[in-house]
Amino acid sequence: MSDDDGGNGKGNGKGNGKRAIIRLRGVRKVYRRDTQEIPVLEGIDLDIPEGSFEALMGPSGSGKTTLLNLIAGIDGATSGSVEVNGTDLTRLGEGDLATWRSRNIGFIFQFYNLLPVFTAFQNVELPLLLTNLSKAERRKRVETALRVVGLEDRMDHYPRQLSGGQEQRVAIARAIVTDPTILVADEPTGDLDRKSAEEILKLLDLLHRKFNKTIVMVTHDPAAAQSAEIIRRLDKGQLLADGNAGPFR
């Protein structure tokens, strides 16, 4: 990766020969509370290559979730540019951003955020309601996604009938059912016991290696971060350094 591709040395991405699917330049994010300005991210330059699995670590309030939100297009930068999968997100309006997210991003949350009144199947089907797929095609895709996460026999179960690990796997199935290029995961193992956490991390690794998904994961857990190819650290709104490969390489 050239200097042009790779940023300016302030914690920019490690080149691996692949194009940068996520490219941030001079990103600044400031929250305003009344007249007070609270800077969260300062001058972030970042390149994340296509097909990589990266972990964002840092203490609470370091800005890692904010950075993830900017990459996912659910929050906007105060200044700078955020280009993801060839689209400059800072130029998109609310509606266009929503459409873009539905096609490019899969979300995995710490608390799974499944809709409790819907079965696993229906939760996974939810993003497909925004597509023009037929009912049969939707079914096929949902079944495939649930098979990938190993829950094809739980598709008629409601979230309350599943363990935390299973709920997170349903959430992952929901994230991949539209076959997005990028998966963003915010503390995906934060609410799980060690065994379930390891299963989720193995699943993310599988999605990265077998299905070539670009994964950006925020975590507090060093063990979880080890499953990523690259670990990036944030402190006080600034990227510090790149990390190394985890145990699943």
């Binding site: 659910i74 929503a98 459409t99 997210r101 539905s102 809709l115 939810l126 993003p127 925004l130």
Partner: peptide, 14 residues
């Protein structure tokens, strides 16, 4: 509120 936020995040429009 959270569910609507999740739906919005995965692409549902306002």
């Amino acid at each position: 509120t959270t569910e609507y936020a999740v739906m919005r995040a995965i692409g549902f429009q306002p």
